[in-house]
Amino acid sequence: MQRQEERVSTTGFFTDSTLCIGCKACEVACKEWNDVPEDGYAWSGLSYDNTLALGHSTWRHVKFVEREAEIGKGGNDPHHLTWEFSSDVCKHCEVAGCLESCPTGSIIRTEFGGVFVQPDICNGCGYCVVACPFGVIDRRPHDGRAFKCTFCYDRQKAGLVPACAKACPTESILFGDLEEMQRVADRRIAQLHGAGMADAKIYNPTDTSVGGIHAFFLIRGDERAYNLPPRPEVPTALLQSSWTAAAAGAAALVVGSLLAFALGGRK
């Protein structure tokens, strides 16, 4: 047998919020390439953000975090807010809740390490929606199927960079070999800390049941202000205790019914 193991490197996104200028080119490029439908034209009143969250028809989402200035940490003028931009995306978890929970096998792990929903298989059961600790995947009304970032699986197959990373004018969104991205992030954080930006940090929950993410972020301050959970957990971690309780319930049903009829069935 011919040995033809093509080594495909595992890829990742490194999104650096300190370089983001909030232009939303990533959102537009993603919509264009993936033919994602419109998701409403409402004005939110919340900074320059009118998309508000990732969802079935928003696969890249630029967050506009306005905060009180802290002299020396962020902003130099106490009368003006600081303005942070961060382009959010599906995290492509190492242990993905959506993938584990999918009953049809529609959601798969690609050879690039991404988590991909096969649109020809998804039957819209909605279980992945309650299995994602980041609130990313959602069912699209009228269409009926669940959608999220595909990690531009089609582009990666053709050796191309995902549309959002390609469009980013400031290289805030970097894409490449996952380990290389981690090295870039480490160098960047050291550089920023050296420059006195003490609150800059990498968001990548490697010490939870999620086990790390393929799209990690450089942010400033508390991750909760970015709607990133401090300790995301995959729901599969609850399966053992929950099924144990189910087994106990099943046993109680059987034993209880048998006992009740054995003792009192015949009058």
Binding site: D49, E66, V129, P133, R224, N227
Partner: peptide
């Protein structure tokens, strides 16, 4: 408008998706 803080989260918007 609600602020983006550690306590409020991102402008008080929900982090999770509602069951469909």
């Amino acid at each position: 408008f609600p602020k983006a803080t550690a306590e409020n989260g991102y402008y008080g918007l929900p982090l999770l998706k509602e069951p469909v």
